[in-house]
Design a protein around this nucleic acid. Structure first.
Lengths: 217, 217
DNA sequence: TCGTGTGAAGACTTTCACAGCG
DNA sequence: CGCTGTGAAAGTCTTCACACGA
């Protein structure tokens, strides 16, 4: 069965990422084969979901046997387009920018940090890590002209989130990982993945309290 | 119309958080009334969604007029149970723990940091911020016995994510904001909200690349 | 017989269309 | 009229049930 890209649920993409994470752990442990049932219990999903998600992109399993861990990893990386290495930059080198720069495993997941930008005179020019120096945000246009970089982490203060997003999209960025906690607006052909700490807290607040209510009666 | 808690879609809760964020901005700008249409365009959702989401919890609007910003804020805070202040702790004071501790607006959103824990002898005893000292993770049981704290941010290294989650749940934590990037397993009556940086990157990789494919032909 | 891949059924969520009311 | 609140329809996603092949 052949699917068009627009038939593929968006949530399938997010689950592929989770499957991939577990598969990499299995690879480290030198496990070669895995069934959708086993993968389901390790990734907190379910077996049919896994098979359905994969079926949007092809047939990767062997009947009676399951999936080869190595080739499934390669397949999912191919789907997510992380198999050739993706460059990214960090905009705003405060606490959150620093946390992302040092986040473990990103390079291992084929995301490679190529630049860090800020507007603070005291930070510009300093070495952040791995020989990467903090660059003046005003130089971002020329920097992106000379590099093939599509992705940026936005980690500025709230009050400059939108103006900075406008600026980096203008300079050629296609996708933004938005860590600011502020909703930003981008053109329809660009992409934003929102991390909202407050939403996380509020979600937990609602569900932990809801449980209490049930326990009471 | 009256709904039971289990009839309320989980995504409604996440959207309430987004509406709340926008409403707070409106409050700052002294805007008193807003229609679902206006709120929709500001929050990147749609008007019917907003009305439906709110209708699960009651009737908050006035026909012909719209919603009062102040009372809708109070209503949503009441739903999310953030109206009386929620205490939380941070487990693991590396780069990510530091970023969360300094994340702007959490106190304003009624989430109040009450403790920071780590296992690094060099960090324990140091003051992190606002008079909060880093506490030995081994003291978490007695700490939680003496405080009414349900929520924790998990920001440890990957390799101790699960064992630390087990430990803090054992000590009484009900909900975990998981920043580790590793899937963790918790008992069914506890809650985890996952922030997975790698999933964010992979999602962006897929969608920015998909767009390229369309542009090519 | 076991585990994949997949149409079809079922469940859930969004959107439509409009009643109701100031 | 204009805007909310909401049954019902439409659309999307998940789960079921089973054909298929090793």
């Amino acid at each position: 069965m052949k699917y068009k890209p627009e038939d593929i649920p968006e949530i399938t993409i997010r689950r592929l990422s989770i499957y991939l994470q577990i598969l990499k752990l299995l690879e480290e442990r030198n496990i070669n084969m895995i069934s959708s049932n086993q993968l389901a219990s390790l990734s907190h999903t379910n077996a049919v979901s896994i098979r359905k998600d994969l079926s949007y992109f092809g047939e990767f399993g062997k009947k009676h046997i399951g999936y080869n861990v190595n080739s499934l990893i390669r397949a999912i990386k191919g789907i997510l387009k992380t198999d050739k290495g993706n460059y990214f930059i960090i905009i705003g080198y405060g606490n959150m920018g620093t946390a992302i720069a040092h986040f473990p495993g990103l390079a291992n997941d084929d995301f490679i940090l190529k630049g860090i930008f800020d507007n603070d005179e005291n930070k510009i020019g300093q070495e952040a890590l791995n020989g990467i120096r903090i660059t003046d945000i005003r130089d971002i246009h020329s920097f992106l002209n000379n590099n093939n970089i599509q992705l940026a982490v936005l980690a500025t203060p709230l009050n400059v989130a939108q103006i900075t997003a406008d600026n980096i999209i203008n300079a050629g960025i296609e996708g933004i990982l938005n860590m600011t906690g502020k909703q930003i607006t981008v053109p329809k052909d660009k992409f934003v993945y929102d991390f909202n700490i407050t939403t996380g807290f509020e979600w937990l607040s609602y569900f932990t309290y809801k449980k209490e209510q049930y326990n009471d009666h």
